[in-house]
Design a protein around this nucleic acid. Structure first.
Lengths: 135, 135
DNA sequence: TCAAAAATAATAACTGTTACTAGTTTTACG
DNA sequence: CGTAAAACTAGTAACAGTTATTATTTTTGA
């Protein structure tokens, strides 16, 4: 039995969510999006944000980032790239580095299952926190 | 001001937690550990498990794994190694592959902060789930 | 225009985790 | 030893992020 809707209707709220994520590449949480969108949709419900984020993740329009904080983050950039999380301030940023998808092959070598992708989270001190600590 | 205890007392409960994690390399959640230890400590509190897991993580005795499920997992193996999470059954396993810590250098190349480490989570189908789907 | 399907707002419920408190265990030292 | 201070625990309440429920509204296609 298929529990998915047969067709997807358009929804102004969902459009606003996608628009926010695609405009600000700041890996927002559901709550961040909720508060930002409230300016245009004062009555929007947090549940609506969560429901659409789940839906969009399932559709592959966005990606969910689980990097150990109290809540999940979302990324509008679904192309392969890696993230850095600052141990001090907790900020998440994209990491500009050469593509290393070949590690999937390395991981497959001694593995009987099927590897389809990976997530990499680098940790350390971001530029500004590094400056702070060396003061 | 230092909020840490000045010395660490021994605690049978904490020993049992460490012992469980080091014995079964199954990346357990707090709840898994709690239920396992209850056999020896029928009155142990879930809070005690959480408190000690946090403490042990801070001490570096164990590592916390945040791989996107509903709860956190813990790993008694603190040596560099990578994990695989099955998209179907959710099982977490160690991935036997060559060390690729050199990616920290690659990541540092165009990065102004300081990179101290990384976590890699591979995704896909584990051996048994792969067999299931091809039946 | 109108009915069916999809989506929403509002709210309640749920779940993993943390905080609090009174009582117990461990430890250091006389 | 005995004992007092510090560390730790059980039990429980509180909290935060997320999901489920439901009545209502919006979207869509004929």
């Amino acid at each position: 039995m298929n529990t998915q809707p047969r067709t997807m209707n358009k929804s102004r709220q969902r459009d606003a969510i996608v628009n926010y994520i695609m405009t600000y590449h700041n890996h927002p949480t559901a709550d961040t999006i909720y508060n930002a969108i409230k300016k245009d949709f004062p009555n929007i419900s947090l549940g609506t944000v969560y429901r659409n984020l789940t839906l969009l993740t399932e559709l592959g329009t966005i990606k969910k980032l689980s990097c150990g904080g109290t809540s999940e983050h979302f990324d509008g950039d679904t192309t392969p790239h890696n993230h850095f999380i600052c141990n001090q301030c907790g900020n998440i940023t994209d990491l500009d580095m050469e593509n290393i998808d070949f590690i999937n092959e390395l991981a497959s070598k001694h593995f009987d299952g099927e590897i389809s992708g990976h997530n990499i989270y680098f940790y350390g001190l971001c530029c500004s926190c590094k400056k702070e600590t060396t003061k």
